[in-house]
Design a protein around this nucleic acid. Structure first.
Lengths: 235, 235
DNA sequence: CCAAAAGTGTTATCGCTACACCCATGA
DNA sequence: TCATGGGTGTAGCGATAACACTTTTGG
């Protein structure tokens, strides 16, 4: 393992650069996709709105740094997270030359999470009221949202934003929020049923209608079987 | 501008890390997609097969480093290049802790390029004969190929691999190489014609048949008009 | 004149879209 | 009983896939 400031015989002419990770955190609540932002704790730009981030430690993989950052700031583990891309302009951070690797995470919002996370210096924002962020973080958010929109159509990442048990109308609301347009109830139903990736439960959710809607669960292995059969997931 | 080893008042506790870029270079020749590899010039692993790469300079954007690397090794400019992703495991390079940002590039292969590039320590490889590469470079190549395959279907990146003037059968051969399956001549024809992104020239290429095939040119602005009209590019 | 690749049209099928109707139930 | 959201079926249309025929020309 390499230690800080230890010299190695190789690459003597190369200059090390500060490496950061930043994490774009999406949630879904009351038919809206939300973004979790934090008040920055260090200078420069202390107390301004920002994504969460951290520098990559010398003995830590970049992916691991992203996971660590998310856990440190939200207490959440086993969250869906994926690389978004590298932000490497020379002057992007006036504090120093910093290269940032951006990640986006999708969080299931229950009542607890909403509370917990907002305890200190953090807040969920609707997309039409995102404040100016530090550095190139607004750009990162825009890029992340576009990536989620494109990806949700062909990969079952939407389920990461819903609680484990959800109703079909809830799922539809989510996709309507992602695509920013209304979908036809019946066609959506047929589509999702035809893929056979949901398990119907015996419970009903009566919070939004008198009749009540059946709860479902996403079944990962059914999705994998579907892919193996060469059937495409498209929603 | 920041200089090497210059101290800044911010982020005193963070440890800088070496940042590299590596470039996966694809070409297309005689109905095959090829990969350009180089003999590594520095230790460790000197003289083994490798992607081209370089460390990112402190006053250089990461994207710019990728462009520089490509030009330094091939002499080519204005090449299609896109970010692939970050490779950031701690022990990926035994020479030092190095984080690499991978890029893939698509090159038009004419006779000149084939010659020029092969002058020193470089060679085009078919995919069934790629040698073991240093570090995680085999993984990068695999990831890049998958990304190109997925992307080619919805974006007109295939044209980057063809000479400026090409025939429809040539284009089809390219897509067959990308997708690894045969396509129907007539359906391919209809599809590409219906999108109206090609300009038919008065010349014919007689190298592959007695009858000869008309040459075409990809017209960028027609593609953009198509996108504006909400029509999808799909091949 | 024939082999071999280029160029074009026609039909069947599948998936998506649009739309209409019944169900369950709390107020 | 009625208003509201849940659950299901069907007909039309457009895109794709499968497939057959004509054209050109060097040998």
């Amino acid at each position: 393992m390499l230690r800080r400031k230890e010299k190695t015989p190789f690459y003597p002419d190369a200059t090390p650069i500060l490496q950061a990770v930043d994490c774009i955190i999406f949630g879904f609540e009351r038919d809206e996709i939300k973004l979790l932002l934090f008040k920055r704790k260090i200078e420069p730009f202390k107390n301004e709105w920002s994504l969460i981030g951290s520098f990559v430690e010398p003995d830590e993989a970049v992916d691991d740094a992203a996971v660590r950052v998310l856990e440190e700031h939200t207490g959440l583990q086993n969250i869906f997270m994926e690389s978004l891309g590298c932000y490497g302009e020379v002057d992007r951070d006036p504090g120093a030359r910093v290269i940032s690797q951006a990640y986006f995470a999708l969080i299931r919002l229950g009542e607890e999470e909403t509370q917990t996370v907002e305890t200190l210096q953090a807040r969920w924002f609707d997309f039409d009221s995102i404040p100016p962020l530090i550095l190139d973080h607004n750009q990162m958010v825009e890029d992340a949202l576009e990536k989620v929109r494109r990806k949700a159509r062909y990969r079952p990442i939407g389920f990461e934003l819903l609680p484990e048990k959800f109703t079909i109308p809830q799922l539809q609301k989510l996709y309507e929020a992602i695509y920013q347009r209304e979908l036809d109830r019946r066609n959506f139903w047929k589509k999702i049923q035809s893929m056979n990736v949901l398990e119907k439960l015996d419970e009903k959710d009566k919070s939004t209608s008198k009749k009540g809607a059946y709860l479902y669960r996403f079944v990962q292995h059914r999705y994998e079987e579907m892919v193996e059969q060469g059937i495409d997931f498209v929603l």
